[in-house]
């Protein structure tokens, strides 16, 4: 189906995205009330009812964007690629809550951490997991959830369960992307797996992990094999970019190599990895009918929301503004 209309409409919507300079100005607000007043002319204002509500308002804005795109994007699965990770996030939140409750902590449930951005209604998901009625759940969750409980019973290790869920999420993402038959989207999903693996490798390097023990933390399905990612841990950090020079992600590692200090550069690299995922799709900008523009717009909107959150948290919490500015991404 043609994406000419879709992409043209997205081009129009892009005009309403907020510039990075706006967030920098937002951070200069004297207090949260001033900052919220500055949002008056933006699309976020319709969701903000008070200083305490800005976090939910940001989610509402992204959800409204998804709903709007749903009305005119020919392949709904493209939106699922963006929203599906939020379903798995919700599954993690609900399961961890139940683990705590069964461990004796009656206050363990954290429904406030559930995201509305998933494709499955949070109430329905909550009910399904609480009652262990998984039959209707999509993306392989029907089979995954009993496995999670089984693993929890055996190990009582929430991190192992989390890794199992992440693994299932990437498999589900790959399945949806393969079904779409759009090479650039499949490549993006694979790159996302690479990014997640690289993030894990960087964290493991900080904890002085050996490559042999790293494999359970890495996921298959990326453009770089999980084994090859794990082997990075045997090599000095400054050689990683050269080792992975056959992959596009090596450009991000150059920043790591230049910094010479893995601890200092961690937030920088994490930001670079997020920007890299946007860059992977950037060629679509030059096409008038590439479906990847839909995902690119959503990622840019998500990046805008992240910047909004950083700016408002900085203002509300009276945090160092310069530190906040460094955390802003240049997604647009």
């Amino acid at each position: 189906m043609s994406y000419v209309y879709t992409v043209a409409r997205i081009r129009g919507m892009e005009n309403h995205l907020l510039e990075p300079a706006f967030f920098s100005r937002l951070m200069d607000s004297a207090g949260i009330d001033d900052a919220l007043k500055a949002l008056g002319d933006t699309s976020y204002s319709q969701w903000i009812s008070g200083a305490a509500s800005f976090d939910k308002a940001i989610d509402s804005e992204i959800l409204a964007t998804c709903k709007e795109l749903e009305t005119f994007v020919p392949d709904k699965e493209l939106l699922d690629i963006f929203r599906l990770p939020y379903d798995f996030h919700n599954v993690k939140v609900l399961l961890k809550g139940l683990f705590k409750v069964r461990g004796g902590d009656s206050e363990g449930r954290r429904y406030d951490l559930l995201s509305k951005l998933g494709t499955i209604d949070t109430e329905e998901l909550k009910l399904a997991i609480e009652t262990e009625e998984y039959g209707f759940l999509p993306y392989g969750l029907t089979d995954l959830l009993p496995k999670c409980w089984q693993l929890w019973e055996q190990t009582k290790n929430a991190q192992s369960v989390e890794l199992l869920i992440d693994d299932a999420m990437f498999k589900a993402l790959l399945k949806v992307a393969e079904g779409l038959n759009m090479p650039e989207i499949l490549y993006w999903v694979k790159s996302r797996i690479d990014v997640e693996n690289l993030r894990s490798v960087i964290r493991l390097a900080r904890m002085k992990y050996e490559s042999a023990k790293a494999l359970p933390f890495l996921h298959d399905g990326g453009t770089i094999r999980a084994d090859d990612m794990a082997r990075l841990l045997n090599e000095p950090q400054e050689t990683w970019a050269r080792i992975l020079s056959y992959s596009d992600i090596s450009s991000v590692l150059s920043a790591l190599q230049d910094s010479q200090d893995i601890k200092l550069s961690l937030s920088e690299v994490s930001k670079s990895l997020d920007d890299y995922l946007v860059r992977v799709l950037e060629n679509a900008k030059y096409s008038m009918d590439a479906p990847a523009n839909v995902l690119l717009y959503l990622l840019t909107k998500e990046s805008e929301a992240r910047n909004m959150r950083v700016a408002l948290v900085c203002v509300a919490g009276g945090l160092d503004r310069e530190f906040g500015r460094r955390l802003l991404s240049n997604g647009r």
């Binding site: 043609s2 000419v4 209309y5 879709t6 992409v7 043209a8 997205i10 129009g12 008038m288």
Partner: peptide, 14 residues
Amino acid sequence: GIAGGAAAGVMTED
């Protein structure tokens, strides 16, 4: 038709 599709998309927003 192709150009019209794009025009409709742009005019929906502006």
